[in-house]
Nucleic acid binder design. Structure first.
Lengths: 237, 237
DNA sequence: AAGTGGTCTAGACCACTAT
DNA sequence: TAGTGGTCTAGACCACTTT
């Protein structure tokens, strides 16, 4: 919406300072010659990107930027998987193992039940940067296709391609120090700091289907984001 | 919006599987007896939370959950600052220092220019969990108020309270290993894994005003999030 | 050509806040 | 009581995709 961008630029220019009130929606209607609905949707757009607050019955106020509403996305993480020219996925293991205690807990199965264990390393220009370890519920009707275990299926974890049985997933991210196995797979030193991105995906019966961890070398990853007034709130001109 | 929640529940129940198309907006109008605008806004809500895709001229499709659109917020981080019962802020330093090379670079000033250095430790129940180090552009007209340096001002960094000169900020998050000073301040061991949340805030002339780092013990922090169909898309019943 | 999402209008009523 | 944001209607036109 054009009006949303106009308002964004006014805020960005300091025309409306943090804490101050924007003109009321009805005034904006008259000033810009648009209907109430259009004004409201414009302001909703500013609300969504977090540059204003609205208080019913009172007004719309410019927010001061703070750490509160900040979010980090995994775009940089994802972009790595798209860059197929420099990225190679090595499948280290694709075997059937019996679930240990932790795995049984995460996948809501019994200790000793069979699971499919996958170990993959993501290599960029000969440099191993991500170690992925995943355990899947063993399903005898779904044979393991080695070919499917390479870039495509890791890429699928991101874009959600093909798999229609998944309903939702839980993610956690931690700062860890690499253990011996991880350091070895990532060709670096013991205790190297790293991100651990853990994921569990559930089917439509809320049963866990997979549990895994991305171990990412801390010296290769940095997540960036920003707060406050963006250049533009919507893609149009 | 009620319709948005109805549709969310239908998707959640597996009525519309990932990849499949939702009924067209005009059909939803008839089926639920609401106007086109209302239907469109409902679907916009699903779009915003990332459970559907819309393709102009084609239809609205249910997304499979993937890591792509995942975002982590700092809510858990923020909640710590609100919990004033168990949280104490110790100001270790509040002095004027000359900028070193890195500081000069980040704050876009000259090496040797004066800056205000703040060092604070956030203690929860006697347990130091966050070490905050910040450098501010020195402004002789803004005297340092010791009282302001405690919880309130750290809290202000989050909610953006009071400060009306700030327009935007850049944030990065890294996995690091504590150096000697940090380990000492956080009462833990050298090389302990940790999150480093770095922030730079800019004024309306795009000049940096402050640069700082939150060092958070990795064994005290875990960021969580989820993807896929949420319980409810809007707060109403 | 028919159907789809994207956008907009010019009103309306409501719940809430301020005075 | 007047003003504010929140929601909704019943149409309309457009750009786009599909058949």
């Amino acid at each position: 919406m054009q009006l949303a961008n106009i308002l964004t630029e006014l805020v960005s220019a300091g025309e409306y300072l943090p804490g101050s009130r924007l003109p009321s929606e009805s005034k904006l209607c008259k000033r810009y010659g648009v209907s109430p609905m259009t004004v409201h949707r414009s302001i909703k757009a500013l609300l969504d990107v977090g540059i204003v607050n609205t208080i019913k019955g009172s007004g719309t106020y410019v927010k001061a930027p703070g750490l509160k509403g900040v979010t980090f996305d995994l775009e940089e993480f994802h972009s790595i998987f798209r860059d197929k020219k420099h990225i190679k996925v090595n499948v280290l293991d694709a075997i059937i193992v019996k679930a240990d205690k932790t795995t049984a807990n995460r996948l809501a199965i019994n200790e000793g039940d069979r699971t499919v264990l996958l170990k993959r390393v993501l290599v960029r220009d000969g440099d191993p940067i991500i170690y992925h370890k995943e355990k899947l519920i063993y399903d005898p009707y779904l044979p393991i296709m080695e070919a499917e275990l390479e870039v495509t299926s890791l890429h699928g974890l991101f874009v959600g391609g093909g798999e229609t049985r998944l309903k939702r997933g839980d993610l956690t991210i931690e700062a860890i120090a690499l253990n011996e196995e991880e350091a070895n797979k990532l060709n670096t030193v013991l205790h190297q700091p790293a991100f651990c991105l853990e994921h569990i995906f559930y089917d439509f019966d809320d049963r866990p289907l997979s549990w895994g961890r991305f171990i990412c070398r801390g010296d290769r990853f940095k997540f960036k984001t920003s707060v406050g007034v963006p250049a533009r709130v919507s893609p149009s001109a």
